[in-house]
Design a protein around this nucleic acid. Structure first.
Length: 309
DNA sequence: AACACATGCAACCGCTGTATG
DNA sequence: ACATACAGCGGTTGCATGTGT
């Protein structure tokens, strides 16, 4: 068994050949058998990954086109880090490819406003375990719970218990955070007045100024997350629809591809708030995204809590 | 030329959901 | 109902390569 952090082994031409040949004859699936029967010293997961990401005949190995890029951007706004879902809309592209592309090209530019968002890739953080918990868990998987003599039921029970304790602790922390960051309507008004100032000052220069007919607020509720984002609620309740000028903050310097970028808003205390947005040329609207923090472990079956600042 | 740092990407990891016995 | 195996997913790591000094 390979230990965590151990050197990565690149696939050789011969291994690729064996895998391709096996899949050609027997088809995809049953990857553990593939590994065994094809005479590969790899596990099933590794074989599947190699096939899916590199050997599949229908792969498109060319560069991501601007059109594909804009699809990725739009779908990422819609789906967040659901790379496989996004990949399904781009024939020949793999989730790994899209994930890497996003991280390489947009992650930094999408500059999330919170540390958590940074860790999860920006726009729509994936539900994830706390890194500390992951680390502890990781170590335990390698050196602890896989010891002989402890049956699966016991392992599962202790893991669940640990998770529960961890979750409770985390929830308390988040409640405190929520109180700290609860969005202040006063701040919101300040932001809007800053935006309005931008509008009046920049409209005079007649430069590359976009005016949007409507402010379309990206709603996390459309993405399967039921809890409304408090900031979003306030915006919708108080300010939308509104003409929102996207001026110097949404120009060539920080707009990517078809118009993805960040609105950097500085409040009266000098604190910067970053609002990400995607300009849609077709609808002449900006889809705004507000930084969120998702606190539940990923792939939970219930609705995660969504926080905003 | 030599080094340090940044970037891109393949391969790995742990985790979850589903199928099967 | 439960245990196990497998498939698939998103996040992370480490190496190769590119770029700047």
């Amino acid at each position: 068994m390979k230990k965590f952090g151990e050197k990565v082994h690149a696939w050789t031409g011969e291994e690729d050949r064996l895998l391709i040949e096996y899949v050609r004859v027997h088809g995809e699936g049953r990857w553990n058998s593939v590994a065994r029967l094809a005479g590969l010293k790899r596990n099933g997961k590794s074989c599947r990954l190699r096939w899916v990401n590199n050997l599949r005949p229908d792969l498109n190995r060319g560069q991501i086109t601007p059109h594909e890029e804009s699809i990725i951007l739009q779908l990422h706004v819609k789906w967040g880090n659901r790379w496989s879902t996004i990949a399904r809309s781009l024939p020949g592209r793999t989730e790994n490819e899209i994930k890497n592309y996003w991280r390489t090209h947009f992650k930094k530019k999408a500059k999330p406003a919170t540390n958590n968002a940074e860790k999860t890739g920006g726009m729509m953080p994936r539900l994830t375990l706390d890194p500390e918990f992951q680390q502890r868990n990781k170590q335990q998987n390698y050196y602890g719970s896989k010891k002989k003599g402890k049956n699966n039921a016991e392992k599962t029970k202790s893991l669940l218990l640990k998770r529960q304790q961890f979750k409770q602790q985390r929830q308390m922390e988040l409640q405190q955070e929520r109180q700290l960051f609860q969005f202040d309507q006063h701040d919101m008004k300040k932001i809007m007045s800053i935006l309005e100032d931008n509008s009046s000052s920049s409209s005079s220069d007649g430069g590359d100024v976009f005016y949007t007919p409507h402010l379309m607020i990206y709603s996390s509720t459309t993405n399967g997350y039921n809890n409304p984002n408090p900031l979003e609620e306030q915006l919708q309740g108080k300010f939308a629809p509104v003409n929102i000028p996207v001026t110097t903050t949404m120009n060539q310097n920080n707009v990517i591809g078809d118009g993805f970028g960040n609105l950097d808003v500085v409040d009266g205390h000098g604190e910067k708030l970053v609002i990400s947005g995607l300009w849609s040329e077709a609808s002449k609207k900006i889809v705004l995204h507000f930084p969120e923090r998702l606190v539940e472990p990923r792939r939970c079956s219930h609705t995660p809590t969504v926080l905003a600042r």
